[in-house]
């Protein structure tokens, strides 16, 4: 490792390519922590937004008009307003309304930090799209298949859980994949409420070290790899869900 760092350092001296965020222990440390924060943020939001999508699509099939109207209102709100404004709304408008708790030093602090608000706002944002995506899958499931499950004694939830959802997922996986990739990229927006994720840290490094170009290339490469890994995982999932003679 040391050899690599020395090599990168020599690049700076010889050609002016400033990769200080790799070879400097401090910069490297905070950049890696930023990347780890991005991974955590992305993973949490992906899981929560998928959960919102699954539950929301179930509620849309509900017999209760009020529930359906509520879900519809939620979707309209989060689909038709800018995600950055949503995040500001959660952090700056809702945040201060929340109760405060004392931390270990006896200082009152908000019950939810900026990371939590970013998770909430991004999950709700992507969740709204996921509901629509899952619903399109649910609608593609044959009525007669549902009827067969009903005649076997499955109740409404069991039909959704064991028949409709597994079939719907297979239909809507490509669309879901798209939306989740978008979500991962949108996590950079947490920069705006000072979540120490990759973009936020990178901007700190390039202000301190004046290596904007190198940081930008590093950032883009990082997201390329992150999204690449995600897409690879989703492709594996898709393959493992493939059923002979169904779909395609």
């Amino acid at each position: 490792m040391e050899g690599l760092w020395d090599f990168l350092r020599s690049l700076h001296d010889a050609y002016g390519i400033n990769l200080v965020h790799f070879y400097d222990t401090f910069e490297r440390g905070r950049l890696l922590r930023g990347m780890w924060t991005t991974v955590q943020l992305a993973a949490t939001c992906v899981l929560l937004s998928v959960l919102i999508g699954i539950i929301g699509a179930w509620l849309q099939g509900s017999r209760f008009k009020i529930l359906k109207a509520f879900v519809q209102g939620y979707i309209q709100f989060f689909r038709n307003t800018p995600p950055l404004v949503q995040m500001y709304f959660f952090y700056f408008a809702l945040g201060p309304q929340m109760p405060r708790v004392e931390n270990e030093f006896g200082i009152a602090q908000p019950i939810l930090g900026s990371f939590a608000w970013a998770v909430i706002s991004l999950s709700f944002f992507a969740g709204a799209f996921n509901i629509e995506i899952f619903r399109s899958g649910v609608e593609a499931v044959q009525k007669s298949t549902v009827e067969a499950a009903e005649s076997l004694g499955f109740n409404r939830w069991q039909i959704y859980r064991y028949v409709v959802l597994p079939l719907a997922v297979r239909v809507c996986l490509p669309a879901l994949n798209n939306n989740l990739v978008n979500l991962i990229k949108t996590t950079t927006q947490a920069y705006a409420i000072a979540v120490p994720e990759t973009l936020y840290i990178a901007s700190q490094i390039w202000s301190d070290r004046i290596n904007v170009f190198e940081m930008m290339v590093t950032l883009l490469t990082f997201y390329l790899i992150l999204v690449g890994i995600f897409v690879w995982l989703m492709t594996r999932l898709e393959r493992s869900l493939r059923v002979p003679g169904f779909g395609q």
């Binding site: 044959q142 007669s144 298949t145 009827e147 067969a148 499950a149 064991y162 028949v163 597994p166 079939l167 297979r170 869900l241 059923v243 003679g245 169904f246």
Partner: peptide, 8 residues
């Protein structure tokens, strides 16, 4: 008539 098995 249409069997209606669970295809997955």
């Amino acid at each position: 008539q249409s069997y209606n098995l669970f295809p997955h």
